[in-house]
């Protein structure tokens, strides 16, 4: 079981121009690790660098104190799944990585169907469909299934919430919480709200710099200053009088309401 992925003085470049860095941080197993930042701040480049697809980097990446070998150790779910589908059916798309590894097709199919169902698609109905004849959210679910059939030590997801409906987003939270128990999970997102309760920390990329925040620190900064990171306004307004607290309630109506009631008592 992997314990942590350690980035040391990692710098990312694009055509010799620095995109971001130096990044120093540890992504651990147990809870998921979030990466946030504006468009163009280098989030996707960071994932690609860890995956070994982007080589203009300086510094080091290690997994449990060994130089990290991406090959065979990572799964990466890309931002725009439809650009990468290349199999004629959903079934083949989902099972592609498994079939590459060999093993029996029947057992692979069973695993593939199980994951499709878990991500919320009726396997019976979708297995033989063409991946491009699906709705946006359905494509996302196929891509997520293809990413989770094989679970290597490091799982990376680039904006997996985009296009998922609320039910799908809740599934994502549930599934990732479970996977994070014995895998290192990195997730790039513009919608951290739902994910904060299952995350250990946030790497915030901004102005070529990378700062790592523990969750409550991140929320505290966002609540006390609207320039820090735009969390929902209603949440920040409700919590601003209490920005000294150690543990912030989750970003949903019920949790905040309960929190405020306790404060009044």
């Amino acid at each position: 079981m992997p314990e942590d992925l350690h980035l040391e003085k990692l710098e990312l470049f694009y055509q010799r121009q620095k995109v971001c860095g130096p990044i120093n941080c540890r992504f651990s197993r147990g809870k998921i690790n979030l990466v946030v930042g504006r468009a163009g701040s280098g989030k996707s480049t960071l994932l690609k660098a860890i995956a070994g697809f982007h080589n203009e980097v300086k510094g080091s990446i290690s997994l449990d104190s060994q130089v990290f070998q991406a090959d065979g150790n990572i799964a990466l779910a890309f931002q725009n799944p439809e650009n990468l589908f290349f199999n004629p059916t959903v079934g083949e798309e989902v099972c592609f990585a498994l079939n590459q590894k060999g093993q029996s097709r029947d057992s692979n199919e069973e695993i593939g169907k199980k994951w499709l169902e878990r991500w919320g698609l009726d396997a019976q109905k979708y297995w033989h469909k063409h991946p491009l004849e699906l709705s946006g959210g359905e494509k996302r679910k196929v891509a997520l299934s293809a990413c989770t059939v094989l679970l290597p030590p490091v799982i990376m997801l680039d904006e997996p919430l985009a296009g998922l409906d609320y039910a799908g987003q809740l599934k994502l939270v549930e599934i990732l919480e479970e996977i994070a128990c014995d895998h290192i999970v990195l997730l790039v997102t513009h919608d951290p709200e739902l994910l904060l309760p299952i995350s250990s920390g946030i790497l915030f990329l901004q102005n070529e710099e990378a700062d790592y925040y523990e969750i409550n620190q991140f929320i505290r900064n966002a609540v006390s200053s609207s320039d820090f990171y735009p969390l929902p306004k209603w949440y920040c307004q409700a919590l601003r009088p209490f920005d000294g607290i150690r543990e912030f309630p989750m970003i949903n109506a019920a949790s905040v309401h309960e929190f405020l009631q306790k404060k009044v008592e």
């Binding site: 929902p232 209603w234 949440y235 109506a253 309401h257």
Partner: peptide, 8 residues
């Protein structure tokens, strides 16, 4: 969530 919060 904002609407739900207002309702509560």
């Amino acid at each position: 969530e904002k609407w739900q919060f207002e309702k509560l």
